[in-house]
Design a protein around this nucleic acid. Structure first.
Lengths: 198, 198
DNA sequence: CATAATTGACCGATAGTCAGTCAAAAGGAT
DNA sequence: ATCCTTTTGACTGACTATCGGTCAATTATG
């Protein structure tokens, strides 16, 4: 038998090879030829590993999200207050320039999923959502155990996720000052959920 | 001098003439030729009134948002509870099939703004955001005056807007059950903001 | 030599352009 | 007022450049 390449691995490799130009130009301003040349492969080969041009964004976002999750886990396992945990949960992804560049590509991915999303993309989004929902639920549960916040807040998990996604979108579409929005929100929100008795 | 047409009006007219096919196919699956034919004008004429293909979506969304605002105002001036007002604020836009169709096109508009938004689009989004922020602030203020809810909630306005936007996106990208999310959220959220003493 | 992998010339679709047409209005001469 | 000329802006669709995606041919591998 001839050589068998690890399709999944090569898919990732190609996407990663194009990471820089993807971040710089975005998928809309890139041609398949440019992508192929950057990855050092022929144009036709691209289609061995990707369904179409947009699919490349999907792959690189997969990588980004996984890195993002690691960073988040890293921060959340620190010994910080419940309030700070919620803050970081909301703020990570907006904190430095590199994250902001990645967000731009993530927005392109959202745009693709919204307008021509495949089953796989939706499945991936649901999976991510569940993963991050678990994280925030843990923050809440931990906060309740510590006696920092009220009972029953697990049910706000989903809303916090939607809130963060909304921020990601609005930061771009309506020029929102993200950090300001988050601190504003949190300062009031936390007084609402804080356990009042001593 | 030759005939002078009201450019702004004609822009709206063309977009409205294409309303149905826009809702049915979305801008991605429409060609300029198809659009021009539907509007009963030449292909070149389209570019007299629109910057590019996507600009047509911008125009029709302008119309939709204005209708949406009217509907919302209509509902909010009814004599209903603060909780119901917040519910409708969140829920309108998801309520019937026609609204859902319009939402699909709105998502395309969001996608466009996120990936290749113009100054005008961002300005429009900010303006809309401010308008709707005012509405929700009024709901809160009214609720506070009635003694239904705690003081200081105006500062949550912005967060509610982001939350709703997040829902709009996630409904599509992660197959979310919107109504469920809203009622879930509201049942807990409202107990948090409700005025406790009698 | 069989099979997997790669390739880039090629194709079809289409967004956007532009040189030219047309009709309405303005102006001027009578 | 009427006719004719000129001007102007709206409108048009054939045309072009671009580019995503395909596939027959080629190369590499074991």
């Amino acid at each position: 038998m001839a050589i068998i390449v690890d399709k999944e691995q090569k898919r990732t490799d190609i996407a990663c090879a194009c990471k820089e130009i993807l971040l710089e130009y975005g998928i809309k301003n890139l041609t398949i030829s440019h992508i192929a040349k950057t990855a050092g492969i022929g144009k036709g080969t691209v289609y061995e590993y990707f369904e179409n041009k947009e699919d490349i964004v999907f792959e690189i976002i997969t990588v980004f999200i996984s890195e993002y999750e690691q960073r988040l886990l890293e921060v959340l396992k620190k010994d910080i207050s419940t309030k700070e945990k919620i803050f970081y949960f909301l703020y990570i992804g907006f904190e430095d320039e590199e994250s902001k560049r990645q967000l731009t590509l993530y927005r392109e991915f959202l745009a693709i999923t919204m307008t021509s999303g495949t089953e796989e993309m939706v499945a991936f989004n649901i999976e991510c959502r569940n993963k991050f929902a678990l994280l925030i639920t843990d923050i809440f549960k931990d906060g309740m155990q510590r006696g920092d916040i009220c009972e029953g807040l697990e049910h706000l998990t989903s809303a916090l996720l939607a809130f963060k996604l909304g921020l990601i979108v609005e930061t771009q579409t309506a020029n929102l000052d993200t950090q300001r929005e988050i601190t504003n929100f949190l300062s009031l929100f936390y007084t609402l959920i804080e356990k009042k008795d001593t």
